[in-house]
Design a protein around this nucleic acid. Structure first.
Lengths: 113, 113
DNA sequence: TTGACGCATGCCGATATGGGCATACGATGG
DNA sequence: CCATCGTATGCCCATATCGGCATGCGTCAA
């Protein structure tokens, strides 16, 4: 078994830096493929492929506008991600009682790995 | 070029469902590898490998406790994820003026793809 | 109809992944 | 010093990824 299909999971979809960039760009409004490709310095087929993935996980929507296809953001799928990460908020705000112990331990003990 | 190395990026590290589960489990406190493996129904080597990845992106810390190695959460690395996703909050709360248009468009136009 | 434009796909190659298995490694106990 | 327990690693396989390139397909203009 190789890595899970990127196409079935939002977490996987946004694991790709370029796809994250696409999403960010789309916050400014819809755009045709070619424009996205240019702005991100990738080839048109490259952009199309990433957009396909984003489309399949529902983070992006397409709208045919004549010869063009305008891609637009649908960020709702990012909410679960935000919430999941948020579930750890108290752990990074905490004084890290135990964590501090780890750190000290690591410092005085011989380096881990 | 294949997919970016999972080991260099938190987004990639948490793209794996099992790794996400490990993080969640660790919220309850430190645990030795074997215990994690059991609780998640995976083999010990499997757990070790996932923990390695999590360690390399700094989401987890190890502490040698005698014969055992206790893994503990260090959620600080999840903050960027939370913030990144949060950057889209207004888009999923918004009434989606333009998005609504897309949706209607999609419905009446022949199915996309 | 034909051509041009915009985009999606197919195919190939190099690479990295995750899982299974066996085994090497480090620390503890006798 | 040796056996044992708890883990980490190495190796192999099947698979999926991303990128590049060429090409197919749909829409619009002449």
């Amino acid at each position: 078994m190789a890595r899970a299909a990127t196409t079935s999971d939002v977490f996987n979809a946004i694991a790709e830096p370029q796809r994250r960039e696409i999403l960010v760009l789309l916050r400014a409004g819809e755009r045709p493929v070619t424009e996205l490709a240019q702005e991100l310095g990738m080839t048109q087929p490259g952009a199309s492929k990433h957009l396909r993935v984003l489309r399949e996980v529902g983070l992006v929507r397409v709208r045919g506008a004549g010869k063009q296809r305008l891609y637009g953001l649908d960020a709702r799928g990012l909410r679960p991600v935000h919430e999941w990460a948020g579930g750890f908020e108290r752990f990074w705000n905490e004084s890290f009682d135990r964590l501090d112990a780890y750190v000290q331990d690591l410092k005085q003990a011989k380096q881990e790995e």
